[in-house]
């Protein structure tokens, strides 16, 4: 039943179904990835912007970054409030960390590429993807437009990856379920739709098959392919006639 024409059509259609649903899921997955990244990043951008606002006030007043007394408390509070945040740091124009939620980092120097990026991108938030987390940062500009330092918030992939893995699994289940469900309906539908031409072909085969009898060609009395019947009948008749004539000629000598 699954071989032959029906089988081929079923394979084609099911393959298209597979591709369509698969591609739908894949696009959905990518869309989700983007949406999730947007929302998560939006949250940390907001936190970052909030800290930067606070810093700007002090900068406008001419206070040196290192002298900001209550900044540490603010950073710690933001980190505690959000378990996805790994680290919040404030660094000066040399890239030296002046405040950090991880106090052991204070006084250390940030990687050079971070600092370079920070001072190249002064008007908007910049982003970096490190092995174990994302980093977003905002550059602090002094009241006379010179780079003064910056703030970074780093947050872990882990939570995002976990969500993505989960959604991947969910989408996989949806895909398999939909393909299986509709695939079965499709197969039965196709078998029904293709039934008629198959039956036609079959009846035709039987009609032609009736010509064939062991050892020769018999012309059946009932057939719906009249022309062929007439033609085959005529051919058989003519060959028989010719045979008879040759026998006659042969016998007469």
């Amino acid at each position: 039943m699954f071989s032959g024409l029906t089988g081929r059509i079923i394979i084609t259609v099911v393959a298209v179904l597979l591709c369509a649903v698969g591609l739908t899921s894949l696009l959905g997955y990518n869309k989700y990835k983007l949406a999730l990244a947007n929302i998560v990043e939006g949250r940390f951008r907001f936190v970052l912007g909030d800290i930067k606002n606070t810093l700007d006030v002090s900068v406008n007043l001419g206070v040196a970054l290192a002298d900001l007394r209550n900044l540490q408390e603010l950073l710690d509070r933001e980190k505690t409030a959000d378990d996805q945040i790994q680290l919040i740091e404030v660094f000066d124009a040399d890239g030296t960390v002046v405040f950090s939620t991880d106090r052991s980092n204070v006084g250390q120097v940030l990687p050079e590429d971070w600092v370079q990026l920070a001072f190249l991108t002064t008007t908007e938030a910049w982003k970096l993807h490190e092995e174990d987390g994302h980093v977003i940062g905002l550059t602090l500009i002094s009241s006379f437009g010179a780079p003064l330092g910056g703030v970074i918030v780093s947050y872990s992939h882990a939570a995002i990856d976990q969500k993505l893995a989960q959604i991947g699994l969910d989408l996989g289940q949806i895909t398999v379920g939909v393909i299986a469900g509709y695939g079965i309906v499709l197969v039965f539908g196709l078998i029904i739709v293709l039934g008629r031409p198959r039956r036609q072909l079959e009846s035709m085969r039987q009609s032609i098959g009736q010509f064939l009898v062991p050892g020769g060609v018999a012309v059946p009395s009932v057939t719906d392919i009249d022309h062929l019947k007439v033609s085959v009948k005529a051919a058989v008749g003519a060959i028989d006639e010719a045979n008879r004539k040759i026998q006659e000629i042969d016998g007469s000598t």
Binding site: S25, G28, Y32, A35, I167
Partner: peptide, 29 residues
């Protein structure tokens, strides 16, 4: 008909899953 139904069902289920999963993220923000 079947392709439309299948893709429609898949899309519906996908959007449903997304809605469920993204809402907590929005809450955090």
């Amino acid at each position: 008909a079947l392709l439309v139904l299948a893709a429609g069902t898949a899309a519906f289920l996908i959007v449903h899953v997304f809605d469920r999963d993204l809402s907590p993220e929005l809450d955090k923000k």
